[in-house]
């Protein structure tokens, strides 16, 4: 049983790995990197929302903190982004624990709005924080390309490899959690917080674990994103649009399922990147008009998510999430 569940995943991972070598087109490689970053973020978000049922609209905060921590260390003290990534993970995990702990007693939408408020507060603070250049943002200094500086100017392949490794790590973590005690606890919490508590699960602690792991992964992708784009500002990193992009692609693919974010990102990211490449240059937002319209169409005609459409018969999980969402 376990084997049959793993093998399609391995095939998907192998296919992704060979893609940038089969089609060595720079736009395509760029799209793949963004795809891996957002699919990974989706996996991270899926832990707290898909598994534990706590809807977060604020994951941009953890993503942004990861990006800012490594960038500040690199920009001000020339510390390698790899070290910065670890520090960013630590900071982001601590922040997640500190701010989300008091929120776990909130139910449903109240929790969701609280996470959104947290991300907004973070954004406002970074905008008015002079030490991190406030609203101006930071241009990451260009240095010679090397693994240590996490900067590569001649080829996108190294970025792809790093993104791929982070992505695989997040898949492995999500898979490990799902297959082990913690995953069952989280799903029990999703189905019913009260019932989970009554059988002796410390719900707050497990929600906290899920949130911390989720924030740590998001922060790692934040560092990579900053080093890849080489420019960061609070509006771009902490925006509701980033949080929602993560939500959208996971919901679109399939909530609470490891394949969900991969499928969702495989559809949404090429869509948004290619419409941007084709129409974005006009600066008139045609790409986002198309993107928005397509999301609406997909939501209207595949309301169960892409995965849900494939297995309409298995209603167990879906019904359960429903019950939670309507509670």
């Amino acid at each position: 049983m376990k084997k049959s569940k793993i093998s399609p995943l391995i095939i998907i991972l192998l296919v992704i790995l060979v893609l940038p070598f089969i089609k060595a087109d720079i736009n395509f490689q760029h799209m793949l990197i963004i795809f891996l970053i957002f699919a990974g973020l989706g996996e991270a978000w899926n832990l707290i929302t898909g598994f534990a049922g706590q809807t977060s609209f604020g994951h941009a905060a953890f993503f942004g903190i990861g990006a800012y921590t490594s960038t500040i260390l690199f920009y001000k003290f020339s510390i390698s982004p790899w070290v910065g990534m670890l520090v960013g993970i630590a900071v982001s995990t601590l922040v997640a624990a500190f701010v989300s702990y008091p929120c776990f007693k909130l139910k449903g939408h109240y929790f969701a709005i609280a996470t959104m408020a947290i991300a907004e507060i973070t954004k406002q603070l970074f905008i008015s924080w002079d030490y991190v250049e406030g609203a101006t943002g930071i241009m990451i200094p260009i240095v010679d390309e090397s693994l240590a500086s996490m900067q590569f100017h001649t080829s996108k392949i190294p970025y792809f490899i790093i993104a791929y490794c982070l992505f695989v790590i997040s898949i492995l973590i999500a898979n490990y959690i799902e297959k082990n005690r913690m995953g069952f606890y989280l799903k029990a919490i999703r189905e019913s917080n009260e019932a989970a508590e009554s059988i002796g699960i410390n719900t707050t602690v497990y929600k906290l674990y899920a949130m911390m792991v989720s924030a740590a992964l998001s922060a790692a992708f934040g560092t990579l994103y900053a080093q890849y784009i080489l420019y960061i500002d609070p509006f771009m990193l902490f925006s509701l649009d980033i949080s929602m992009k993560i939500v959208l692609l996971t919901v679109l693919g399939g909530l609470g399922n490891i394949y969900g974010p991969i499928i969702g990102a495989a559809i949404l990211i090429p869509l948004s990147e290619y419409t941007r490449i084709f129409f974005g240059g006009t600066g008139k937002g045609i790409d986002l008009i198309i993107f928005g319209a397509l999301i609406v169409v997909v939501a209207c005609f595949e309301p169960r998510g892409i995965l849900g459409a494939f297995k309409k018969k298995r209603k167990v999980e879906r019904g359960a999430y429903d019950a939670k969402a309507n509670a």
Binding site: V247, G285, D287, A293, L294, I295, A299, R318, D322
Partner: peptide
Amino acid sequence: APGLTALLATFGLSLFIRNL
């Protein structure tokens, strides 16, 4: 629709209207 699908639709709509 289950879970967060309605949200998907309204968020898509907001992107559409704003950029239009």
